[in-house]
Design a protein around this nucleic acid. Sequence first.
RNA 1: GCGCGAGUAGCUCAGCUGGAUAGAGCGUCGGCCUCCGGAGCCGAAGGUCGUGGGUUCGAAUCCCGCCUCGCGCACCA
Length: 568
Amino acid sequence: MSADPLKRALLAAARSVGAPETTDVILERPRDPSFGDWTTNLAMTLAKPLGRKPRDIAQALSDALDLGAAGVAKVEIAGPGFMNFRLDPGAQAAGIARIVDDAAHWGRSNVGAGKRANVEFVSANPTGPLHVGHGRQAALGDAIATLLEWTGWSVMREFYYNDAGTQIENLAKSVWIRMAQQLGIEVAIPEGGYNGEYIKEIAAAVIADKGDELILAHVREGAEAISAGRRPADAPLFDRLRLEAVAALRREQDLDMQAFGVKFDTYFLESSLYTDGKVTQTVEALVKGGHTFEDGGALFLRTTDFGDDKDRVMRKSAAKGGDFTYFVPDVAYHVGKWERGFTRAINVQGADHHSTVTRVRAGLQALEMGIPPGYPEYVLHQMVTVMKGGEEVKISKRAGSYVTVRDLIDWVGRDAVRYFFLMRKGDSQLVFDVDLARSQSEENPVYYIQMAHARMSGIFRNWGGDVAAIRGADADLSQLAEPEAQLLVKALLDFPAMVEGAAQALEPHRVATWLLETARLAHTWYHKHHVLGEPEPIMRARLVLARATQLSLAAGLSLLGIGAPERM
RNA sequence: GCGCGAGUAGCUCAGCUGGAUAGAGCGUCGGCCUCCGGAGCCGAAGGUCGUGGGUUCGAAUCCCGCCUCGCGCACCA
């Protein structure tokens, strides 16, 4: 029994005592279960419009309430005017019939009504393997996208490659230097260069592949130029190295995401914004709109008109190279998202990028093209600390200076990595305990939840019947009257509302919390009450509950991209 | 200094958008293996919700001040 019949009955009761047409009924789960199954503060909110005491109103509402229609066994008035409802246990348990009868839609809703949302996440520069922060973004972004899909949005998962700009230039220079070193030339990696193992691998691959064409004198000249802070004279070779390096790292990052089970619909290249002319178009539109000015040879956008604390440079002065700063393509990129028809754009990023939020939005507002001020939305997450053997891990062999997503997956497996990244809300810092994630014991929440699912599956294995054919009508669900069964039933019936709330708040951790709690209730019920070997009516009812539990746990796990094993 | 985030049990964290006696996991202590998987279950102890004010019937939750920690404050991305 969901809250809906109760809500309708209360609304009718409210009308009959003279409540305004606009009255809304808010039902909540009481914090303390001994207060009942549902509670409402309706009488208190009606106190002012009706000019009566809350407790009197509560009594009048209680008298007017159609208990049968509401599925309520008992109403209590408590405290300043709360109304507590205890549902009829049979009526409540009957609610789980719809879980097993229509498993494919359980937990899904349609508030998004097919509107288009773009979820952009990871968006790493192709300059190195993905680090743990990207892992958190991947887990968050993928889960948020799934949550939106479950609530009726049409979602595109997008990865934005910053494949233009200074960092890529540094990447190419680093590869050049490693190549030179491997050819016997003595040079050092310059300031700001990359020095992970993977750079050596790329350099070695280039030599192996194109060794015959390499002109040693050019390599030497380039190495010296890079050391002196310039570009190599052999521009075609430098270009080639850049492309090789970017391609190699994109392959590597793709493999990382594949290992993590994350699939993107679109890979968007920053460089395409330049080749398509979108960047210059955006700049022209901004200049035309009158929100720009020049100072010291640089072109500024007056972002302070839109809440920024200082104006930002769009195009550097000639003395600084005359390039656009990164946020210009970023604005052009988001114009593109809007033009592609995404009424929502959600960006999942590390909190260290939060300064870009105001800037990008300011750029979009300055264009005055009707984009809402809150576009795009941002989900920013705090830093991740990796702990192993009681100590913080900072170094990865391949990447050199940071722990990679691949390291984590290798250590603890995909499911545990996903869960650990999602069990905390994004805006709190996360301690990733590798030893805990790896342990196959009750301490590990992932195993605990998966075990609950496996146990339900185990019941069906021993039963031997056709699990998929189990229907609510096969059983008298009022048999599920024990406290342990009722608590589990309530948790299961909360699932759709939980999903909707998590989707609306863009907070996948609510799913993780729900899973852990529901798994606990499932273990407790399983331990206390047997399914098989009980009298037929009881067994039938418990099979339905076990099936509803199995389906709900599997649904919650799949929302987070985690497997639901039939056996452990 | 300014902006953003965090501060809740010994530890790691929830707290459903302002509700009743603030919860979970781990850890600690104490129980439970003839039982659909003990990779488990049950119970107990444990908190001045960083701090000082304010808003109201009611605050961990909203507002202001202060303290601590993290991140960011480029003509880098």
